[in-house]
Design a protein around this nucleic acid. Structure first.
Lengths: 368, 368
DNA sequence: AGCTCGAATGAATCGTCCC
DNA sequence: GGGGACGATTCATTCGAGC
């Protein structure tokens, strides 16, 4: 670890520092931090209210700290805090930033402009995202993290084997499926509402810190919020430094951190869960060209239906999913379309389930 | 479709145009294209001093098609081709770009700078990516697409129900699991090697075009390569315009396209949105005797209102349309009266929307 | 205690038409 | 173009009430 020169500022470990993150970082000794994890404001630019189909109102992120006047203002802010972060980062240190499409392109471009060297972009695929209530866009089901070293050629920390172990013996990929932060983990305010609008799940920080830091490293989070980075760092035996402007969040973080205990090595072992057979939408067979739009499927009793480009079927007087059309043909309340429908290949009649199995086999070879 | 003014350039449909995409786009009529799909060079071999601004023009790109002197040169190139693309895009048109972490942050930022309005970023999660052989980083298992309208508030095309059908009845998410282009689909050169280094899978384009264009739309691809965009567009009954500088790729694309057949109309028909269904005034239910004046309707929470002869409702202290009275009862800004109100028949509680569906079915049987 | 069912909720750039 | 009316639209998970 770099030792500060005589008279130089000292690195305050395992504390939450109040104030603006740029000013606070500028008072810290240069090249003293191993990892920076930053979850900056996203600049969401929300307009009106949004309601669910049941008319309940969506609790939006309308906090003052997420408001910027323009892209130029947001870029200036990004430039300044990244520059301050860069100064305190050790030469072989690394940085993680997280964002959504609202801000992540500006984050990534500025990282590159300042000479950071992007190692991976990582997609946090949310297993339970909020749906798109109006049906006007795709479900916004992921956020993006960028992992970068301080410069090209720097010797960053990467615990390849640890991440491989976390992933059941297979090399960790750049897409991580993790649930959003809910339930007991989600900090509440006095009235039982969420204490912070954008609290990140500890599982996400767990993977980041296990994969790219070592025990004893110093991890700094300039947008500390309610302290998820600190909580996981402490648990994993890393040192943390949090910076947070809002008193409310700082107090919550301090209380939270006081309750966290460092895990012993044995407790850090993760139990792997068996995953169920992945769901394969019928439409994927069409997209992948395993079945052509217009192709005729037959039922065991000789009924026929044609495949459409969106993965629905059209039979006589009926259209819908493979299950719906099958059920209608049989006059049954339900029907497993996968085993009901067949197609012809090389003179043989084959159930479409064979094609689903083919896709599942591909996924099993290279799971996650 | 916008008709070109007398003497204005004509839109060449279903062809592959030779030349530099910026020059070629600048010769096309403005506001004439419905969708642009762009897979620009990835700038994979970045080197050089990032602090030395390189003001060289796009033409300064050297012999290798994916090499640029610096981020500045890449940004200038991005700015120029996006500007040309923007000019030929219809006001309600949209653009897709695809990239990796090497270039996508610069693409996204420049899209925003030019006034494009990002609708989603989409992660193409590769089910069979190339592993990271040296174990120094995460497996780079995805690429990023950005979907943007020409401006905020523009009426872009989004076939919500078709994508939902492709995904077995659950709304499509922003992460798409699709295999990379291999096997028969991968075009080979004379020696049996891959003909193009970054050929995209047709499944990816299938989802893009089914979801965000309609049959007959004009789809332009300024970096056409071996013509995946054109092949899927032709198959799906969309018109394509490809631009490609390299003769080799153009020839391969032309041969490929000549073999593609357009699907028949039925296969192209896609599950439609309810928004397209004919409007049925509530009063028509009363006129037709499906509901009697004076009849009592109930809400899910037990509120009641009575039907009047003119198709309005009267509740306690409120009268007006089914929507207005529902909204007033719920204290909500708006309410869909069709799903909110129920009536009783044969001892069962039925939403009035059932009656509207009955009328719509009759209209479909005997269209007028 | 165990089960079922309903309510609540999450970083969201979430209408369209007609007058 | 502004304002008002119509009316389209949700997935996974957790927690608590009620039985």
């Amino acid at each position: 670890m770099t030792k500060p020169a005589k008279g130089a500022p000292v690195l305050p470990l395992d504390t939450v520092l109040p104030g603006d993150c740029i000013e606070v970082m500028n008072r810290l000794p240069e090249e003293s931090v191993d990892l920076i994890f930053a979850d900056p404001p996203y600049n969401l630019q929300l307009r009106g209210d949004l309601h669910r189909p049941d008319n309940s109102r969506v609790d939006a992120v309308d906090d003052h700290w997420d408001q910027f006047d323009s892209f130029a203002a947001y870029d200036a802010f990004t430039r300044d805090w990244l520059k301050a972060a860069r100064r305190i980062l050790k030469p072989n240190g690394a940085i993680w930033v997280i964002g959504s499409y609202h801000n992540v392109f500006r984050l990534g471009a500025e990282l590159q402009n300042q000479g950071f060297w992007i190692l991976n972009d990582v997609v946090w695929r949310k297993s339970n995202p909020m749906p798109n209530f109006r049906g006007k866009r795709l479900t916004n089901a992921h956020e993006t993290l960028i992992w970068a070293s301080k410069s090209e050629g720097a010797k960053y920390t990467f615990n390849y084997e640890a991440l491989k172990a976390l992933n059941e013996g297979i090399q960790m990929r750049s897409d991580w499926v993790l649930p959003i932060c809910t339930g007991h983990e989600r900090l509440k305010d006095g009235r039982g509402d969420k204490a912070h609008p954008t609290q990140k799940p500890e599982s996400l920080l767990h993977r980041v810190l296990v994969g790219t830091t070592n025990p004893g490293d110093v991890v700094l989070d300039p947008f500390f919020g309610t302290g998820t980075t600190g909580a996981v760092a402490k648990m994993l035996g890393r040192n943390y430094i949090g910076i947070e402007r809002e008193t409310t969040y700082r107090d919550l973080a301090a209380r939270r951190l006081s309750r966290v205990r460092k895990l012993d090595a044995e407790a850090l072992t993760v139990t792997a869960s068996k995953r169920a057979a992945p769901r394969v939408p019928f439409g994927q067979l069409v997209e992948r060209g395993l079945l052509r739009p217009g192709e005729v499927l037959t039922s065991p009793r000789g009924k026929t239906a044609r495949v459409r480009a969106d993965g629905t079927l059209v039979g006589e007087d009926v259209k819908g999913s493979i299950h719906q059309v099958g059920a209608a043909f049989e006059g049954a309340p339900s029907c497993n379309g996968w085993t009901y429908w067949h197609f012809r290949r090389d003179g043989k009649t084959v159930p479409i389930d064979r094609l689903r199995q083919q896709i599942r086999d591909e996924m099993a070879d290279r799971p996650n």
